Amino acid sequence: MSQIGREIIASLQELHDVLESGEPLEKHFTIRHYVVPAEPSEYDGSAVRGVRDRYKMSQAIFARFLCVSVDTVQSWEQGRRKPSPIARRLLDEMVANPEHYQTRFSEMAAPKDPKAASAEPNHEARLSKNVKGTGKPRAGVARRTASR
């Protein structure tokens, strides 16, 4: 028998012995309990747009973050399609933890090295940029690099 096989049998024997003794499992094993909603929330077009607007993201940046196409985000927002369960779960997390995601998006938008970023003409994604001449921020801008 292989080493892993012996370890599995020993672990099962240990479990059997604890069950036979009547002692609480927590005394011998790490027990974790999780409550996970059965299904993520439903999102219609305005709800998807609301999440995107909350983070002041363009459709392109939002799509990139969710690993979907811009067409998909547009379809969701126009009510032609509904987000998949995994996309809805992520949207739920974005709604439930806005501070976390705002921090993450700010980190993603900030260049790692400001001097290198200003010299680099093809930044892949920026979450905010000033509207020319106004000094006011606008929604994100997506740019594709030559490597794509």
Rank of each mutant, 00 (worst) to 15 (best):
I61E: 11
E42T: 10
I31K: 10
V73K: 06
E14P: 00
P137F: 10
A109M: 05
V48H: 10
G140Y: 00
L15H: 07
E120V: 00
K115G: 07
S106C: 03
P111A: 00
P24N: 13
F62I: 00
R80W: 14
E26Y: 01
A110V: 01
V68M: 08
R126P: 04
T30D: 15
K82M: 03
A109E: 01
A117P: 08
V68F: 02
S118Q: 06
Y55L: 14
Q3N: 08
S21D: 08
Y34C: 09
E93G: 05
T134Q: 08
E124V: 05
E124N: 02
G135A: 07
M94L: 01
Q102K: 06
D53N: 14
R88A: 05
V73R: 02
G135R: 08
R52C: 14
S46M: 14
R80Y: 14
L12W: 12
P83Q: 06
E7H: 12
R81E: 09
G45E: 09
P121C: 02
A146E: 07
Q13H: 09
M57S: 15
F29Y: 12
P83S: 05
E39F: 00
S128E: 11
R52N: 13
A142K: 04
E26V: 03
P98E: 06
A146C: 04
Q102R: 09
I8H: 01
N97A: 02
K129L: 15
Q3T: 07
T145P: 04
G5N: 04
Q74T: 13
